[in-house]
C-alpha cells in the first residue's frame, strides 16, 4: 500500500487543488481517503465486493462535490464517512428488503454474506470473532463502534458523521460494546480468548 506522499497537506487544500485540475492532488486524495471508506464499508457490509462499490461511489461523490467545497466548514473525511455510511445503510436496507424502522432495529446480517471477508481476514481468532460479533449489532451501534474503535474517530467527529448529538454517540458506543462483550462471551470457550491473554 503506497504511503501518503504529502501528509502535511490538509484534505481541504488537496481538494481545492483537485478542483483546480491538479492531477497529483487526485492521486494523493485517492491514496489517503479510499482506504478509510473501504474499511468502514467492509465492517458495515461484511462483503468486500459491495464495500468496494461503496468506496468507489463515495469517492466519485467527493470528486463531483470538490468545486463546491467550502474549506473550514467541515472536515472532508467526516463528509466522506457520512456519504459512505449512508450508502452502506441503503444497501443494507435493500438487502433486507424492509423499511427504515426495521433496518435500524435489532437483527443479524445474513450468514451467507460473511465468509467472503472472513476468508481473507487474518487467521487471528479474535479478529474473526469480533468481525462476526459486529455483524450482529444493530446498524447504528455498529457504525458508531467501528468509527470509534476501528477508525479512531473522536466522539464529536462521529456525531458529525452520524448527524446526531455527542451523548447519542456515547450511548450507541457504550451499548454496542456491551452487546459485543455479550456476543464474544458466548464464544469465549470455543475461541479460548482467556487462554490467549
Amino acid at each position: 500500500m503506497p504511503l501518503d506522499a504529502n501528509p502535511e497537506i490538509s484534505d481541504d487544500a488537496l481538494l481545492a487543488q483537485y478542483a483546480g485540475g491538479d492531477r497529483a492532488a487526485a492521486r494523493i486524495l485517492t491514496l489517503r481517503l479510499t482506504p478509510r471508506v473501504l474499511a468502514l464499508a467492509v465492517r458495515m457490509l461484511g462483503d468486500r465486493s459491495e464495500a468496494e462499490d461503496v468506496a468507489q461511489e463515495s469517492m466519485l461523490r467527493l470528486w463531483k462535490m470538490a468545486p463546491d467545497w467550502r474549506p473550514g466548514e467541515a472536515q472532508v473525511s467526516t463528509w466522506l464517512y457520512r456519504v459512505a455510511a449512508n450508502l452502506c445503510t441503503d444497501r443494507l436496507r435493500r438487502r433486507r428488503g424492509v423499511g427504515i424502522e426495521e433496518a435500524f432495529g435489532e437483527g443479524a446480517e445474513p450468514a451467507d454474506e460473511q465468509p467472503a471477508v472472513e476468508e481473507r481476514m487474518h487467521a487471528d481468532g479474535r479478529a474473526r470473532a469480533l468481525h462476526q460479533a459486529l455483524s450482529e449489532l444493530p446498524e447504528r451501534q455498529r457504525q458508531a463502534v467501528v468509527l470509534r474503535h476501528l477508525e479512531g474517530l473522536s466522539n464529536p467527529e462521529i456525531a458529525a458523521v452520524m448527524e446526531i448529538g455527542i451523548e447519542a454517540v456515547e450511548s450507541l458506543t457504550a451499548r454496542g460494546k456491551r452487546a459485543l462483550v455479550a456476543l464474544l462471551g458466548r464464544r469465549r470457550a470455543e475461541l479460548g480468548l482467556s487462554d490467549d491473554g
Binding site: T34, L38, E52, Q56, L60, H122, R126, A127, H131, L150
Partner: peptide, 28 residues
C-alpha cells in the same frame, strides 16, 4: 478482551486493491 479484539481487527484491516485505487483515480 474487547480491546484485544479491536486491536486484532485493526491489524486485519482490509486495504484497497490496486484495481480499486485505479478505478477511483480514473473517476477523479
Amino acid at each position: 478482551e474487547l480491546d484485544a479484539c479491536f486491536e486484532a481487527l485493526r491489524a486485519a484491516r482490509e486495504e484497497p486493491s490496486p484495481e480499486l485505487l485505479a478505478r477511483v483515480l480514473a473517476d477523479g
